[in-house]
């Protein structure tokens, strides 16, 4: 099952390696992983897409939390969220085919960002499905190069993403902070 985690991490050297190493070591398959800055200085945000079975999801989350540099882990899969991928596609374009390609670009609400005598670079953002759809249509003209960012995700609404882990147990009652327990296990 395709699962999307949004992971906030400390912006420090080696953090990406730690996350990637953990996922590999535990035998999970990364479909995509993106990293970038957030609204908070010193905090980076990763979107990790994994193909895992249901039972493993809670364990991945728990394992990610064991990394000292991991600040917050959210599984956004079950929540209403916006998923986006960005692609740049260089496609062969002759004088004859250019018009048809431009029409496709319009239909997909993509943009042409570079034109040269025999090719175009198209930029598109959207869900992976939408991008796949455009790529499929462009194949007949000849896709020369493609670069995709992988998925970024954000939950809808103001408080989404703020909730603590809830997969193990319930959260009735007050949260007891135990000074002797390190919450980075």
């Amino acid at each position: 099952m395709e699962t999307t985690f949004v992971v906030h991490v400390e912006d420090q050297p080696g953090v990406l390696t730690r996350v990637a190493s953990l996922v590999r070591r535990r035998g999970f398959n990364i479909e995509s992983l993106t990293v970038g800055h957030t609204e908070t200085p010193g905090v980076s945000r990763m979107t990790i897409v994994l193909d895992v079975d249901e039972a493993a999801i809670a364990r991945i989350e728990a394992n990610l939390y064991k990394l000292v540099n991991v600040i917050r882990v959210d599984n956004v899969t079950p929540r209403p969220s916006v998923f986006r991928d960005l692609a740049m596609i260089k496609v062969a374009a002759t004088a004859e085919s250019r018009g048809a390609i431009m029409q496709l670009v319009d239909v997909f609400r993509a943009r042409v960002v570079d034109v040269s005598p025999d090719s175009l670079i198209i930029e598109i953002t959207g869900t992976e499905d939408k991008i796949d759809g455009l790529v499929e249509m462009l194949k007949q003209y000849g896709v020369l190069e493609m670069a995709r960012t992988g998925r970024v995700a954000m939950s809808r609404g103001a408080d989404a993403g703020q909730r603590a882990r809830t997969d193990i147990g319930d959260d009735d009652g007050e949260v007891a902070l135990d000074g002797n327990v390190s919450y980075s296990v």
């Binding site: 917050r72 319930d170 949260v175």
Partner: peptide, 8 residues
Amino acid sequence: HGRPPTPP
């Protein structure tokens, strides 16, 4: 550290 405390 970051981990939200485990609920009771």
